[in-house]
């Protein structure tokens, strides 16, 4: 993976494969503590303690747990390359939370990449999911919640390329407000 936004998309695709209806993605860039934190939380089917133990093992893959795959192993590796780490909390039938930390200034820390592309890609996944996206950088914050749009517009569906195009434009503007 070239950048962290691709890792995030990959982990969120796991969430969708695990039957999640709600996915929350929180990215926090904290220069004061030289820390980048990524948290992806879902309400998917979760993992048992046994599966959880092997979830980040790249050589652990069977047909029945195929949706776990390589993704977590790659994110863990990316975090550890940047003096960080990854932890997973998961409860069967309740959901999973993946948290990865990185030393923000580490020379091997991958760039964050294009979060707008990641969020819009999630919006056209094969199953409709609610996405909450928070991107904080040194006190400034972008918050995007598909529920907020639905609350404002009623039972409107976001599944059209036009709607996603509007959201892409909106998110790009919001991300620009975080510029250093």
């Amino acid at each position: 993976m070239e950048d962290l936004s691709l890792h995030i998309l990959d982990i969120a695709e796991n969430s969708i494969a695990a039957g999640a209806h709600n996915i929350s993605i929180v990215v926090n860039e904290d220069a004061a503590h030289d820390l980048l934190t990524i948290e992806i939380t879902d309400d998917g089917k979760g993992m048992s303690a046994e599966v959880l133990r092997s979830a980040a093992d790249p050589f652990y893959t069977t047909r029945t747990t195929r949706e776990i795959g390589f993704g977590l192993a790659l994110l863990k590796d990316a975090a550890e390359m940047a003096s960080g780490g990854m932890e997973i909390q998961s409860t069967p039938n309740l959901g999973t939370k993946v948290r990865a930390t990185f030393q923000l200034s580490h020379i091997d820390r991958k760039p964050l990449g294009d979060m707008v592309e990641t969020i819009t890609a999630l919006l056209c996944s094969s199953v409709e999911v609610h996405v909450l996206y928070v991107h904080a950088r040194d006190g400034n914050k972008v918050v995007f919640d598909t529920r907020e749009i639905r609350d404002e517009l009623g039972s409107i569906s976001l599944n059209s390329v036009k709607a996603i195009s509007v959201i892409r434009g909106y998110l790009n503007q919001e991300e620009d407000t975080l510029a250093h």
Binding site: V127, I156, N159, S160, A163
Partner: peptide
């Protein structure tokens, strides 16, 4: 949303 371009 008025356009019927369904995604999925």
């Amino acid at each position: 949303a008025r356009y019927k371009i369904a995604l999925r």
